[in-house]
Amino acid sequence: MTVFLQQLVNGISLGSVYALFAVGFTLVFGVLEIINLAHPAVLAVGALVAYTLLSTLGVGLPLAVASTLLATGLLGLVLDAAAFRPLRARRAGPLASLITSIGAALILVSLAQRVWGAEPLGYPPGTIPLRFFSVGGLTISLLQIVILGTVIVLVVALRLLMTRTRVGIAIRAVAENPATASLLGVPFNRVVAFTFFLTSALGGVAGLLVGMLFQGSVSPFMGDTYGLKGLAAIILGGMGDITGAMLGGLAIGVGEVMIVQYLSSSYRDAVAFGLLFLVLVIRPTGLLGRQRSREA
């Protein structure tokens, strides 16, 4: 039983990072109905920027998080302006956006490689002191607490933004019904740009957290696996739904850890994606997703 709970703890802390990353995917999908495959590259850039801040510049963790948020957020704005907005102007379909996001991802990875090289990097060992706590027979590391804490803070902030602020309601209005949002005076392109700022910021911090969780794993290519897992999370939780993305991410994290523990690590992917296929076929809107009823 203790093993199960222990793995649950591990799964939750891993899953929380997936959740943060998945939220970015789902927000963009909710607003534009496209899958942004440059998001994993943004995660990698975030991790790398954090590396520079933490290692090269010796900045403290809270400041590093805040700066990464800002830096990758701005990157999101550039991404929207360069890759997605021109396609919106030409009324290209969702396939075109998918391809262009792939192109943007390649460019980002290549530029990152130029700046940081291709070899995996690690954050300075002292960033999070190696400390463990014993709670009811379970071991929780300070690292896990910090990660979970950061994610919770960001998620709560996001929720407040979405429900209490003018811009948050505007984003949700556009996701719900773009034509009606226009009638209420919401400027579509500006709201979309802000959405990209938001999602990329969160993706970047997810990268930082991944870098802390897996020592020595920071490289321009680290985003690849997360792309798939992020997609899996939003399929599970329902595309376009933020809470769903979070639950999906947690489920993937916990599921991953459990499958490795109880089945075998090699079949992990097969089982996971097989389940995903079933979810899509049986309930395409995911556990919490909505019916597609609006006209864009």
Partner: peptide, 24 residues
């Protein structure tokens, strides 16, 4: 402009719909 078919934002709460109306 209150459009044909009402076009309320179904998944937002009533209060949020009202706030959205004040966006401008």
């Amino acid at each position: 402009h209150v459009p044909e078919g009402r076009q309320i934002l179904a998944r937002l709460t009533v209060e949020e719909n009202l706030r959205a109306g004040a966006y401008a």
